Amino acid sequence: MTGISLNLPEDLSNSLADLAKTSGQTASYLAVDVLRDYIEHEKVLTSQIEQAVEEADQGKFATDEQVAATRARRWNSNAG
């Protein structure tokens, strides 16, 4: 494993130490876990954005009806 040094704001460092203590994990383990999740999320998001740009470049856009249906589904799922 490769080492890295980070300078964290005191409040973040304290929160990380507290979470490590309560979870029984090391601060390093938690930091690696969070970074791994963040990087994976960003890779997926970037891929989705690139695909959307390609589709837009090809003139593929959602219809007004599709947009309205998506909004309605999201509104209904968030309302309850």
Rank of each mutant, 00 (worst) to 15 (best):
G3T: 12
L6G: 02
T26G: 05
R74Q: 05
A20R: 02
G80F: 07
A68S: 10
S5P: 00
V67M: 09
S15H: 10
L8I: 08
Q51Y: 04
Y29G: 00
N7D: 10
N7H: 09
V67Q: 05
V53M: 04
R74E: 04
R71A: 01
T70L: 10
Q66A: 12
W75Q: 11
L30N: 02
A79V: 06
V32L: 08
G80P: 02
R36N: 07
L19H: 08
K60A: 07
E55R: 14
L35T: 06
L30M: 01
D11A: 14
S47G: 14
K43Q: 11
S23N: 09
R73T: 04
N14L: 08
A69P: 00
E54W: 01
L30F: 04
H41F: 15
M1N: 06
E54R: 14
I49E: 02
S77Y: 05
Y29A: 10
F61L: 13
L8P: 09
N76P: 00
Q25I: 00
T46R: 13
I39F: 12
Q25E: 08
Q58H: 11
N14Q: 12
V67R: 13
F61I: 06
T63S: 15
G80N: 12
V32D: 10
T70H: 07
S13F: 10
K21V: 01
S77A: 13
E40I: 13
